[in-house]
Design a protein around this nucleic acid. Structure first.
Lengths: 118, 118
DNA sequence: TACTTATATAAGTAGTTACGTATATGTCAA
DNA sequence: TTGACATATACGTAACTACTTATATAAGTA
């Protein structure tokens, strides 16, 4: 946008780095990644996600809130239920890129290959 | 590797999700992102990074350790100095993808555009 | 209205994290 | 060896995080 911080700039100021770090922190928990994985195939209600993950409803709801506030999930109420969905494909692209990073390490130190997208 | 967890699988088990989350947490701090940004243009010594970031030597050293243990940085001793470098281009690709995510949000809620790579 | 189901939030707790200050370790040179 | 410089670690602290249990809010139905 400005001369000092646009798409061609190579340096982000502290507050941009803080916002970027906040996005990464939203990804930085296994329970939240499990939620994203469940949502990969489409929108789910809180109840469906709770059944799939097997943890408490309160915890599911809170972690969904974290993901939603980070802009990773959309939220839609349908009657008494609330459906969450991945807000845009780019969210899964980020997961995929991180998976590739881990899989490359596994070349020398073999470990199970992992992928978010098929 | 196995039938239940390979490159075509769409479901990661808990321990894989934990490892993935750990990678994201390594990215999830503004100081560490600032270090990565400095290293984008090549290897730097701890001292150079300290001067560039302006925070304490102890903190720089500790955050570099976090990044190194997460597999994001390589480490090489040259005499009394230690040089850190980004371990592979994919590391910056992950940052770039997260930047794109933030920039898309900015379309509706304008904010400075940000990018790691030029 | 009351009752049920679905989701969100509050309060408490144990564990983690980022940082400052101080100290230890490592490398080189005299 | 001693001293100077470079880097790493130990310790303490304040803030944050993930979770559990309990409760509150919201929507639908009788």
């Amino acid at each position: 946008m400005s001369i000092h911080n646009n798409a061609h700039s190579s340096s982000l100021d502290r507050s941009s780095l803080e916002r970027l770090a906040a996005v990464f922190r939203a990804f930085g928990d296994a329970t939240r990644l499990a939620l994203l994985q469940e949502l990969k195939s489409g929108a789910r209600s809180v109840n469906e996600l709770q059944t799939a993950l097997g943890t408490s409803q309160a915890n599911i709801s809170r972690q969904l809130k974290v993901l939603h506030e980070a802009g990773l999930l959309s939220r839609e109420r349908r009657g008494a239920q609330v459906f969450y969905a991945i807000s845009e494909p780019l969210v899964m692209d980020i997961c995929e890129a991180a998976c590739r990073k881990l899989n490359r390490e596994a070349v020398l130190a073999p470990a199970p290959r992992m992928a978010f997208a098929s």
